[in-house]
């Protein structure tokens, strides 16, 4: 089974527990203006100005690469993460990756933007140890304006996954001027109260490392000039989504 990745990154320490290898699957239904992986938008291999984005690779090759660091996962409680783009867009490829990873006793995470068919996500989650579920904007209209889609389906999927017993960590990108306001932080907190069995909520502060990639792809970056938040601000954000019963 072959699929399309745009990156395969070893020694990742931010996408799930422990030391991990992250496979970034190409293709995404959302168009978040701040995205630091804009090369993930289109599903197929792309060529822009002589530069190629994405490559075809078999599930076996991906897992073989991930297995090279198995000893590091075992010591650190890590494993392999399938991210994107939206990995559910390549559902069959993702399922064969997950199956193969399990056969090799690798801990698996899937990071999803939540905008996918509910059945597909449920099927994926049954093969996955931990779901990293992105939660971006609480107001449906603003969500649509910044990502291209409303958040209704996303919230329904979160509920469905939660009720199916999936282990979930909420991942909340915070973009200055977009969602760094108390209303949003309260919404995150409310979700945590609503789904107390979730394993946590992580703040993912905005960073501008994607800007040059937008340019390379011939795309306009809507957040040009936006500065990365400082450590103090990030810590304040983290405080604001803390609940009494669950540590970050």
């Amino acid at each position: 089974m072959k699929g399309i990745l745009f990156n395969l990154q070893r020694f990742s320490i931010h996408d799930g527990p422990g030391i991990r290898t992250v496979a970034f699957l190409k293709g995404c239904p959302l168009r978040c203006g701040w995205c630091h992986n804009p090369e993930s938008f289109k599903r197929g291999v792309q060529s822009v100005n002589g530069k190629t984005f994405g490559y075809e690779i078999s599930a076996g090759e991906v897992v073989a690469e991930a297995l090279r660091d198995k000893a590091y996962y075992e010591e650190s409680g890590g494993g392999v993460t399938f991210s994107g783009g939206e990995p559910a867009l390549q559902k069959d490829f993702l399922l064969s990756l997950l199956t193969l990873a399990k056969e090799n006793n690798l801990h698996t995470c899937v990071e999803t933007c939540g905008f996918a068919e509910t059945e597909a996500l449920l099927e994926i989650s049954r093969q996955t140890d931990l779901i990293l579920f992105d939660y971006k904007i609480s107001d449906p209209e603003t969500h649509k304006r910044h990502t291209g889609q409303p958040n209704g389906l996303i919230l329904r999927n979160l509920k469905a996954l939660y009720e199916s017993g999936s282990k979930i960590i909420l991942r909340c990108p915070v973009i200055p001027g977009v969602n760094d306001h108390d209303g949003h932080f309260s919404a995150v907190k409310n979700l945590r109260r609503q789904y107390p069995g979730m394993l946590g909520a992580e703040i993912m502060p905005y960073h501008n490392m994607g800007e040059s990639k937008w340019k390379e792809l011939g795309l306009d970056y809507g957040f040009a000039g936006l500065k990365n938040p400082d450590e103090k601000t990030v810590n304040e954000w983290k405080e604001k989504v803390k609940t009494r019963d669950a540590a970050l």
């Binding site: 020694f11 320490i13 422990g18 030391i19 000893a71 590091y72 075992e74 010591e75 650190s76 409680g77 890590g78």
Partner: peptide, 16 residues
């Protein structure tokens, strides 16, 4: 900030 991972990294390197 990621002391656990750093420790695990070194430990595994030594074990390997």
């Amino acid at each position: 900030e990621h002391r656990d991972l750093f420790r695990a990294l070194l430990r595994t390197y030594f074990k390997q």
